[in-house]
Write a protein that binds this DNA or RNA. Structure first.
Lengths: 214, 214
DNA sequence: GTCAATCTGTGAAAAATTTAACATATGGTT
DNA sequence: AACCATATGTTAAATTTTTCACAGATTGAC
């Protein structure tokens, strides 16, 4: 009889994880929801509510043990287990992801990098050679792939995403600027940079209006 | 007496804009909230409520004129005016942003690219030479810069962000993996890729649980 | 020109999320 | 050992967000 935890809560968890990691690096051993609240600019109540969705990690009169809470949130987010990632699209963005060392510390390992452009065959990123798309199917069948990151142009993204799903891949990290049409059971996380930029643009205009009013 | 429009609504607007753009490309002239609802997998009611925050763009018995609505949302998002962007950090991610031609169509123009690493001085992206950080201040004073995109490592991100704000830049597109500490009036849009990846990771675990239960 | 079908804009209801409030447990101090 | 300050977990209230429902406007068919 587990209650579903809302995505609103899940979206906040990585941020808690990040701040706790920073506290850990700074040698802080314990923290109260109030202190964390001041640091993160959210209400202490929200922090306690969020955490209590997963269990009581704190102690009355003491607060939270930073290391313990950090580890627990890590488990919740599935960081305790390895995730193998392939990146489809070896342009700058694909290479940026492949280069990002920090991901590996969290168990996210880039095991393959694919592109249609033969020019990329020359390139290898952190020891991973760029493979051509016609090798994709064989690769996926030979290796466990948990996540496919789509960093290619949107034109054929939907087609390739469906192909990947048919090959058994259950999760897509989508950077292509479109909404993928995929079966229910596939987990999709979108990173729409242009959407983000437009939100920024809106808020710039809003801020200007507020300023001019004064 | 304007009511504040919630960020929840604003986050959805670029998605409407994107879908309307696709419809426009497909030559669709009009669309009802119901049709759009089916396409976008959100309720028709939400679409109508969202749009009505900004005004009545539709017509009873007819629906919405795609071109008109597209343009209106563009205006709302501030896409009708040019935004000059500088990118701090000329690594793969910075280059990816600088290379992304589509942004320019929406009025987002990358006018400068900066890095601390002298090795990048050789590189230029779409005609933009990478400048060294010591030229940043002069550049910002000579050019109107609306947005600074931070694509450098987190270590000095906060310091540089504050420097940029002191130079008069009012908006930060932050890709560094930390929460910036900036004055109230600065508009910040975060793109935390590792947060996104962790959310994906959580949802993968959740999906596995659901599947195994059956 | 009339009428049925369509579809928006909007007020109200329902649901979800956030914040407040507090009972109760723990730690540290004297 | 007793007591006060601290701080969680949790229930309840407040707020926000989403969905429902429908009056009224418009279109298109005949």
């Amino acid at each position: 009889m587990e209650k579903e935890i809302s995505q609103a809560v899940i979206r906040r968890m990585p941020r808690y994880y990040r701040h706790l990691g920073e506290l850990l690096d700074d040698g802080v051993e314990r923290i109260s929801s109030n202190e964390l609240s001041a640091r993160m600019r959210v209400t202490a109540s929200q922090i306690r509510q969020d955490l209590n969705n997963f269990g009581g990690f704190g102690q009355q009169g003491y607060g939270y043990n930073v290391k313990y809470l950090y580890d627990e949130i890590g488990k919740i987010l599935g960081i305790n287990q390895q995730h193998n990632i392939i990146v489809i699209g070896a342009g700058n963005l694909g290479q940026a992801l492949a280069n990002y060392v920090k991901f590996e510390k969290r168990g996210f390992v880039i095991i393959g990098l694919f592109d249609v452009n033969p020019a990329f065959q020359e390139i290898s990123v952190r020891g991973i050679k760029v493979r051509m798309m016609d090798q994709l199917e064989a690769f996926v069948k030979e290796n466990r792939v948990d996540i496919a990151a789509l960093t290619m142009p949107k034109e054929n993204a939907d087609e390739i995403a469906n192909m990947l799903v048919n090959l058994g891949i259950g999760a897509i990290w989508n950077f292509a600027h479109l909404d993928l049409e995929l079966p229910e059971h596939v987990v999709v996380e979108n990173v729409h940079l242009s959407d983000s930029l437009m939100q920024l643009s809106y808020n710039i205009a809003k801020q200007r209006k507020q300023r001019d009013k004064k």
